[in-house]
Amino acid sequence: MTKKLQGNGLFESSRMMLPEHREAYLQHQQRIERRIRPELDSQVIEHIERILSQSLDGGARITLTLWNESEDKKLSGKVIQFDSIRGRIRFESVISRTWIPFNQIIGASAEDES
């Protein structure tokens, strides 16, 4: 059923947009819209905690997903210290050691050994 008489249907069905233009436009819109930090489910938090402590205890290399206003960043390395008073971890990657606040971490995964 055609939707030309409803909403934006007339223009959505007649416009000429290159797929690459559309993608670039969507990226542009994402940049200007302020990103909102995702609310983490308690199970996800538990999962992240487990991965972090496995890395701290066993020295396993892990990949963190860090929230940032413009875009998420991935960082791989291992946890070398917990600072629960200030709510942060000391993280060692190939290039540097940094403090990362807990609330910046929105994902963690163990690096596959395979």
Binding site: K4, L5, N8, L10, M17, R22, L26, Q29
Partner: peptide, 25 residues
């Protein structure tokens, strides 16, 4: 059919289409 009505409305300037920045999402 519908396309006939589309033409008639355009000729009369009847159009409520919103300007939708989110139309591509």
């Amino acid at each position: 059919g519908v396309n006939g009505e589309v033409l008639w409305r355009i000729a009369r300037g009847i159009d409520n289409s919103p300007v939708m920045p989110g139309t591509y999402t």
